[in-house]
Design a protein around this nucleic acid. Sequence first.
DNA 1: TTCGCTATCGAACACTATGTACAGGATACC
DNA 2: GGTATCCTGTACATAGTGTTCGATAGCGAA
Lengths: 191, 191
Amino acid sequence: MEAAKEDRRSKRTRQLLGNALVELMLEKPFDEITVQDILDRADIGRSTFYAHYTDKENLLMSEIERVIYQLDAYTRAVGEQTHLLLPSLELFRHLREQRRLLQAFIWGRASDMLTRSFQGRVSKIVEHNLLALMGDTVKFSVPLSLIADFVTATFMTLLRWWLDDEMRSTPEQMDEMFQKLVMPGIHAFML
Amino acid sequence: MEAAKEDRRSKRTRQLLGNALVELMLEKPFDEITVQDILDRADIGRSTFYAHYTDKENLLMSEIERVIYQLDAYTRAVGEQTHLLLPSLELFRHLREQRRLLQAFIWGRASDMLTRSFQGRVSKIVEHNLLALMGDTVKFSVPLSLIADFVTATFMTLLRWWLDDEMRSTPEQMDEMFQKLVMPGIHAFML
DNA sequence: TTCGCTATCGAACACTATGTACAGGATACC
DNA sequence: GGTATCCTGTACATAGTGTTCGATAGCGAA
């Protein structure tokens, strides 16, 4: 929406730094990675790094935001489907393309930060769809936020399991498992 | 079972350091806590710290292990109850007593490490009970490890939600929610 | 192509935290 | 009371962080 004009050099630098971090996170945990490591890998000068980011953490966050943004754009492109709590099939399909990136976060022990952002985003979708889905006719005997957390956590669990299993299952199979695990539990709380 | 004889001084030192860390984690995230902070809070000399622990992380881990150990001892005392996947009611009761400690881990952003250890321990219980519960008569259409992960993740989600909600619900209510959320989903995968 | 602007470079620097070493004093154990 | 063990305080080497600045190179617009 803004920053339409970014200097080629800046863009290049940011990309190099981001890629370097991801590569390194495939090799060792995030907090064992030093700024110097990133600099060497990206072949970028020290002062340049600090011209773009305040921190290692700052760089990590900006990478996370990129993932979330793409995920967001994707779900928006897919359109609203209020017949489901989550467009889970589409999400699994989309995330399969991001395997390398997701793996980096998990190997790099930065999965909790990813999960946190993820959780925030996915929870919103779930709450929104939950409301739209049932108008005012259906109520729950527990807080919506808890339902949303449950749905999200299950999704994340499946995602992690999928990655550990080297993504052998198809997105369709993952989606089926997800629906089967999650929906019956939720129905138990409808009034 | 071993190390029955530990010098009073050592024990005291370890306790002071552990408590100091927990106190500090109630105030700020773990990786913003410096060894010096811990030393000041515990009023312990620098070299003494390194005589006991190699690291900040090392100290954290030993605190986590203490929690897990207690949890383990508790569930063992409660006895095996194979009519359930998890002695969840007992766990909720037990964990209510540990509120301060749990809160420290969550506020201190060290919840992922706690969760990891927790997950490992709880998953074993679940897998064990799952097998004992159904002998060879019942099979699942998905790997047991996935079921275990699902159960554990849901438990952890409820636990986190409970803490965020300042533990307003009773252990009994928590247990009921847990059972309702988890069991229907699992039945869907029984063959 | 030229010109002005901005990003990058690299080296130097101050600062903070880490982990180690050691000698002298205190405390626990038997 | 004697001895082993732990604690203390200081000093030090090392490593990583974040900043500064003058020089250089690359960009984009006229």
